[in-house]
Amino acid sequence: MIFCQLFEPLSSTYTYLLGCEETAQAILIDPVIVAIERDLGELSRLGLRLAYSLDTHIHADHITAALELKKRVGSKIAGPAIDRLPCVDVGIEEGRPFQLGAILLKPLHTPGHTDGHFAYVSDERVFTGDALLIEGCGRTDFQNGDAAVLYKSVHEKLFSLPDDCLVYPAHDYNKRHVSSIAQEKERNPRLGEGRTLEQFQGIMAGLNLPYPKFIDHAVPGNRQCGVCPADLPDKLAQYCAKMTDSQQG
């Protein structure tokens, strides 16, 4: 399998390109609209045709590129079926593997950050979205988030994966690229280190995070699979503008 990790610096989002060497088809996990030219350029460079975009959840900090990619190259939109988005071509469900050529993804419903959140297991890798970050996790105070539910998702599903399974999150804010299940069990200060549910709930309740500055535009836009709002304030215009500097992680 061809594998690339790509980084969008404005929202600190990782996009993952998975390519099948047999069919020359590809999947993009969590593509960002401002990075679409970078992603299409990477696909061209590798001689791959994008077959699917696949989101882990309805994002609150950026606009997905799913719809624009479909318009540009004809790729299909895949996403969690539980969200019931009419713009999604293929609904993802736990227990139903998602396959493209030699690429096989095992979907895991991992709610808690959002109620429709999914992670995707591919051989020795797991794409954890915002459910499990490197020594952290996504917040649980919006989009039907729930700390107790997230704790259960991580401990019963993600932490049950092999210790050497590589953790590839949707974000990192400290220039880190990859972790492992063993490392997160041992070093994650919120969910690892033997933290109890009560301790985790206390940690999340005490974060006192500011209201997400883009959420009121991102969530409605992403419920349409990636529509930039017409009323976007000038101070947030960069979230839908073309990137001037494409960085690769």
Rank of each mutant, 00 (worst) to 15 (best):
A24M: 07
F98Q: 01
G112A: 11
T114N: 08
V73W: 00
A26Y: 09
M1L: 08
S44R: 13
K157F: 13
K70L: 01
I134V: 13
G74H: 05
L158F: 13
P162T: 08
G221K: 01
H117V: 08
A218G: 12
F200D: 10
D231K: 01
D39F: 00
L108S: 08
H217N: 03
F159R: 11
G145C: 07
L104K: 14
L166I: 11
R84G: 00
L100C: 12
E156R: 13
L69V: 09
H217M: 04
R190I: 09
Y168K: 09
T13E: 15
D164C: 12
K175V: 11
K106R: 15
R84V: 09
R190M: 06
D245I: 04
L232N: 04
C240G: 06
C165W: 03
L104R: 15
Y14V: 08
D163C: 13
D234N: 04
T140M: 11
Q247F: 15
E8W: 09
G206A: 14
G74R: 02
I181N: 01
I29S: 07
P80E: 02
C137E: 07
R96I: 13
H59R: 12
D146T: 02
S44F: 07
D234R: 06
T64R: 04
E156P: 11
V219C: 07
V154S: 10
E186Q: 08
P111F: 14
T110G: 12
F118Q: 05
M243H: 05
V88T: 11
L100R: 12
R223E: 14
K175A: 14
G19S: 08
V167H: 08
D89R: 02
T15P: 09
P212S: 00
G41C: 11
D55Y: 14
T15N: 05
E184Q: 09
V34N: 11
D30K: 11
H109R: 14
Q99G: 01
A60T: 10
L191N: 02
